[in-house]
Amino acid sequence: MKKSPLRRSNKPVDFQQKQKQQLMLAVGFYAVLVLIAAMGNLSWSIVGWYALIGAVTYLVYAKDKHAAQQAKWRTPEATLHLLSILGGWVGAMMAQNYLRHKTKKSEFRLAYYLTVLVNLATLLYLISGGDLSQF
């Protein structure tokens, strides 16, 4: 059976929904960091670090995307993962989704998710003051 030429795919809607969800996740993460810092359980410099490294990571992804389109020198994947593990995973997530960059390679995505887990575990350690027994 032929598809009607007027029928549209759900993919753009799904993509836009995913963008909104990830934006809410990013805003929520930073809001929680600010709340934890306001409660005195996290240094404001760490909140600033997360904001800075997130922005830098997004820009590095954007530069890499542009280089890929121009067939120029690319940023090594290890560098992208290092930025994520250092706290730039939110910027990486936003860049992957909004720039549609580094979304196809399953090995890259798996490594990215591992960097998120390692970073969040480190953040939990910092919030706990090194005493994870309270959790």
Rank of each mutant, 00 (worst) to 15 (best):
F15T: 13
K18G: 10
K18Q: 12
K18D: 12
K20S: 11
K20L: 15
Q21L: 11
Q22F: 09
Q22A: 03
L25Q: 11
A26K: 00
V27Y: 06
V27T: 14
Y30D: 08
A31W: 02
A31E: 02
V32L: 12
L33A: 01
L33R: 00
V34D: 06
L35F: 12
L35Y: 12
I36N: 08
A37S: 15
A37W: 07
G40K: 10
L42M: 11
L42T: 05
S45E: 07
S45F: 08
S45L: 10
G48W: 08
G48S: 09
A51W: 07
A51D: 05
G54P: 02
A55P: 03
V56K: 05
T57V: 04
Y58N: 08
Y58T: 09
Y58Q: 07
Y58L: 12
L59N: 13
L59H: 13
V60F: 06
V60H: 08
V60K: 08
Y61T: 01
A62S: 13
A62K: 14
H66A: 14
A67T: 05
A67C: 08
A67H: 04
A68L: 07
A68G: 04
Q69G: 14
Q69K: 14
W73P: 00
T75K: 07
T75F: 06
A78P: 01
A78D: 05
L80M: 03
H81L: 14
L82K: 05
L82N: 00
L83R: 03
L83A: 06
S84P: 02
S84W: 03
G87D: 02
G87T: 05
G88N: 02
G88M: 02
G88E: 03
G88T: 04
W89C: 06
W89V: 08
G91I: 04
A92E: 03
M93R: 11
M93P: 02
M94K: 02
A95F: 05
A95R: 04
Q96N: 09
Q96L: 05
N97I: 07
N97C: 09
L99F: 09
L99Y: 10
H101G: 05
K102I: 07
K102T: 07
T103Y: 07
K104D: 11
K104I: 11
K105L: 02
K105S: 06
K105G: 04
S106E: 08
S106I: 13
S106F: 00
E107L: 12
E107F: 04
R109P: 00
R109K: 12
R109L: 08
R109Q: 12
L110Q: 11
L110M: 13
A111S: 15
Y112M: 06
L114P: 04
L114Y: 08
T115C: 11
T115Q: 03
L117N: 09
L117I: 15
L117Q: 09
V118D: 06
V118F: 15
V118R: 06
N119R: 00
A121R: 00
T122A: 14
T122H: 10
L123N: 00
L123Y: 02
L123I: 09
L123C: 06
Y125Q: 04
I127S: 00
S128I: 01
S128K: 12
G130Y: 10
G130F: 11
G130T: 10
L132N: 09
